[in-house]
Amino acid sequence: MSGTHLHVLHVHGHSPVHRLAPEVKVVAMLAFVVGVVATPREALWAFAIHAFFLVAVISFAELPFGFVFRRMMIEVPFVAFAVALPFLGGGPRIEVAGVLVSLEGLWGAWNILAKGTLGVGASVVLVATTEIPEILRGLDRLRVPRLLTSVAGFMIRYIEVLASELRRTRTAMASRGHDARWLWQVGPLAASAGALFVRSYERGERVYQAMLSRGYDGTMPQLDERRARGTEWAAALGLPLTTWMVALLAIVGS
């Protein structure tokens, strides 16, 4: 599953993309991905344009391509699934390099690969150029319910604390020869999960006491700074709007 080291997701920098207000970047990223997904899979030219824009943003943000590529490895499981599709798919079959594959499966594989890759790329760019607390603040300003962002804030704050506790437990188990390969060996894992949970619950209680001590009364205080300027919105939304135009053209043209 996902990496535990949150700071490796971010690339420190001062590019124009880094400096944009977080809420602007979140909206632009979401809109871009929606545009990509709405594009009919047969419109290969449209995907070329989408990819070009994504690569342009990556270089504009001064992100190392190697970094972006490594982070995009998260989609490997779906690449694997996509590769299997042409063989599992139904419908008419065509011959590719001497192997009979499903045409529908081939298109499906392309669809997942193209859209999945562009989607993952957009998300990687967002997180690489925006500190995670900033993203949460952006969501706050986009009027995402406060309860949701508060829970997310606590979650992000404690992922690393819990992960390092879990890592210690796992190290202790592995150093005593535990290497579970079958379901009936799940016992020690379940037990260590239970112990970890009690520790995190007790921590939750202490955190709550610390919050009460500083006047918490059930709602997180509003700590807001600058809002995004109109020019920022215009600059950042240009890209997804183009994506939507391309998608629209592709839909009309197909």
């Binding site: 804030g153 992000i156 704050r157 604390v161 921590r203 610390a210 919050m211």
Partner: peptide, 11 residues
């Protein structure tokens, strides 16, 4: 508090 990780809960 004794454990600073309990006290520092904001991002």
């Amino acid at each position: 508090f004794q454990d600073a990780d309990d006290q520092l809960f904001m991002p």
